[in-house]
Computed example of a mutant assay.
Amino acid sequence: MFWRKKRLPYELQRPFQLDTKLRDMSFTIFDTETTGFSIASHDRLIEIGAVQVEGFYVTDRTFQTFVNPDRDIPEHITKLTSISQREVEGAPSSLEAIQAYFQFVEENQSGGWIGHHVSFDEMVLKNELQREKLTYDPPSSFDTMDLINYLNPTWDQQDLENYSNVFGTRTFERHRALGDALTTAHLFVEVLRCLEERGVTTLADLLRLRNGKAQQSIALF
């Protein structure tokens, strides 16, 4: 018998018109921390952080939760993130944490998700929900690295802090979900201002830019 995953009932994207000015939109910038990079097998989610951007400004509306990974956090991850086993032992389960994050997104009527290496963070959520035999309707997402590469294709660095230094934006606590989300948010709004100078002013423009980058990636294989 064919079995289907149950879909979580969250509205994670407000239906903005394609001609909506980016200055009139809202986005959710988010980040995750995990026990490692093998998220499809044994590594698990340990923190989610997010902040809301309205127009070209970072708001004070933030979200942060630790997540109980039901496994030990490797020592090198604790050194990198400063997240200890004791901090996550009484934390919500991955499903409870993701549901709380989805509620934050829904309440803020987000026009999409923004992240630095955003596909990794999306995959973290997807794999955690798959373990619970659940799925969700993902919103549009945009990667700051793709947007920056459009502005200057010769840049090959990928580190978030390096880009923040290049664009002169604020850097918050690194390798923590909320800190990296805030760092990405301030970088994102500065990138939006630069894109506006290049004629990227509407949601349709941003989608064309993103889809063009996706086609370039496909062409490489």
Rank of each mutant, 00 (worst) to 15 (best):
25 M>S: 04
25 M>Q: 00
25 M>Y: 01
25 M>N: 00
26 S>R: 15
26 S>P: 05
27 F>M: 12
27 F>Y: 08
28 T>Q: 01
28 T>M: 00
29 I>R: 02
30 F>E: 04
30 F>W: 13
31 D>A: 10
32 T>E: 12
32 T>G: 11
33 E>D: 09
34 T>K: 08
34 T>G: 09
34 T>N: 10
34 T>F: 12
35 T>R: 10
36 G>Y: 10
36 G>K: 11
36 G>F: 10
36 G>N: 10
37 F>N: 09
37 F>M: 14
37 F>R: 11
37 F>C: 10
37 F>E: 07
38 S>Y: 12
38 S>P: 00
39 I>W: 11
39 I>C: 09
39 I>Y: 13
40 A>F: 13
40 A>W: 12
41 S>K: 11
41 S>M: 04
42 H>D: 12
42 H>L: 05
42 H>F: 13
42 H>M: 05
43 D>Y: 09
43 D>W: 05
43 D>K: 03
43 D>C: 05
44 R>N: 15
45 L>Y: 14
45 L>G: 15
45 L>F: 14
45 L>C: 14
46 I>Y: 09
47 E>W: 08
47 E>F: 03
48 I>L: 15
48 I>S: 14
50 A>F: 04
50 A>V: 00
51 V>K: 02
51 V>M: 00
51 V>Y: 03
51 V>A: 01
52 Q>D: 04
53 V>A: 05
53 V>T: 06
54 E>D: 12
54 E>P: 00
55 G>Q: 02
55 G>Y: 00
55 G>A: 01
57 Y>V: 07
58 V>P: 06
58 V>T: 02
59 T>M: 02
59 T>S: 15
60 D>W: 01
62 T>M: 10
63 F>I: 00
63 F>N: 02
63 F>S: 01
64 Q>Y: 03
65 T>N: 11
65 T>M: 10
66 F>V: 01
67 V>F: 15
67 V>P: 13
67 V>Q: 12
68 N>E: 09
71 R>L: 04
71 R>D: 06
72 D>F: 08
73 I>T: 08
73 I>F: 11
73 I>V: 03
74 P>K: 01
75 E>K: 13
75 E>S: 12
76 H>C: 05
76 H>D: 12
76 H>W: 11
77 I>H: 07
78 T>K: 09
78 T>G: 07
79 K>P: 00
79 K>R: 14
80 L>F: 01
81 T>G: 08
81 T>P: 07
81 T>C: 07
81 T>V: 04
82 S>Q: 12
82 S>A: 10
82 S>Y: 04
83 I>F: 06
83 I>P: 07
84 S>V: 00
84 S>E: 13
84 S>N: 09
84 S>K: 15
85 Q>R: 07
86 R>Y: 09
86 R>W: 07
86 R>Q: 15
87 E>W: 05
87 E>P: 03
87 E>A: 15
88 V>E: 05
90 G>D: 14
90 G>T: 06
90 G>K: 14
90 G>L: 06
